[in-house]
Design a protein around this nucleic acid. Structure first.
Length: 159
DNA sequence: GCCAACGTTGGC
DNA sequence: GCCAACGTTGGC
């Protein structure tokens, strides 16, 4: 029994790791998530789930590419690396606190979908869409099949 | 368990 | 660079 494909949105600062970087490396461990809710979403991911690649802290924040989940969650090695900025002294290998998934490049969007554009469709996306819900700063969040479809229908409309 | 202080996120 | 909003920490 295979779980039905699900969809997610994952944020990254392009100065740190962009969709171009993902294309170059192919597959990348999504390291550094230190928020329990975001971690729980990663633990729920299945191989092949769709990912919207979002650029935060960008000149024009928005969705710039598509990726997919390449493996199920496993402990984030950086939490045990004293030299890493993601080191967490309260975690230990017997009971790792933080997990991550690998994310695989699928494609760039023909045209990015800006946060402003996304906001224009807030009503259709619904109030539960965490990306534009007031005060929500989740870096990994679920997207419904309907939201996925609607968002991708905006691709290429922003000339 | 409360809450002030602090750190982080992320749009602008 | 600013700052609002939120999460976490730690004293009590």
């Amino acid at each position: 029994m295979t779980a039905r494909k699900r969809y997610w949105l994952m944020k990254s600062e392009p100065d740190d790791f962009s969709i171009d970087d993902l294309k170059r490396v192919g597959t990348e461990p999504w390291t550094g998530v230190r928020n329990y809710q975001a971690r729980n979403f990663m633990k729920a991911m299945q191989v092949g789930d769709g990912v919207l690649f979002y650029h935060s802290n960008a000149e024009v924040p928005g969705i710039y590419g598509i990726a997919e989940v390449a493996c199920t969650a496993y402990p984030d090695p950086s939490q045990f690396d004293r030299k890493s900025k993601y080191f967490d002294e309260k975690s230990n290998p017997e009971q790792p606190r933080w997990e991550l998934v690998d994310v695989k490049y699928v494609r760039h969007l023909k045209h990015g979908i800006s946060l402003n554009q996304i906001r224009e469709h807030a009503e259709q996306l619904g109030e539960d869409f965490a990306l534009i819900r007031k005060g929500t700063r989740l870096s990994v969040l679920p997207v419904s099949a309907a939201q996925w479809k609607l968002l991708l229908s905006l691709e290429g409309r922003n000339e």
